[in-house]
Nucleic acid binder design. Structure first.
Length: 98
DNA sequence: CCGTTGACCAGGC
DNA sequence: GGCCTGGCCAACG
């Protein structure tokens, strides 16, 4: 099992309408948050893992998103029923905590 | 094998 | 509340 696959597996387990932070995925997988971000970057195709359900600890998104940018990512999240506070995800309501 | 590079996060100013 | 710094760890050259 590669480190990427472990990250992908956890991200795939995120239910619709919920989000996780990079650091949270890192804790579950057992790697540093940087590695999670690296794995997401490797997934820049966006066809393998719903990386739009992974956001910053702050609830903010990323500029270099695979599908085109944070605007596209925000649209995808809203499409799944996730609400936003300004330019950030409403973590209080949608952060998946285990 | 070593140095650099990140889609990060927390702390200090 | 924005910006910088240190720590973190796998992938790349």
């Amino acid at each position: 099992m590669n480190t990427f696959e472990k990250v992908y597996k956890v991200v795939l387990k995120i239910p619709r309408g919920k989000v996780l932070t990079y650091g949270n995925v890192g804790i579950v997988v057992g790697v540093s948050p940087r590695v999670v971000g690296y794995a997401m970057h490797a997934n820049k195709n966006g066809k393998i893992v719903p990386c739009h359900r992974v956001v910053f600890r702050d609830g903010s998104l990323t500029e270099g998103y695979a599908f085109g940018g944070k605007d596209v990512q925000r649209k995808l999240l809203v499409n799944e029923g996730i609400s936003f506070i300004g330019d950030k995800v409403d973590l209080e309501s949608h952060l998946l905590r285990g």
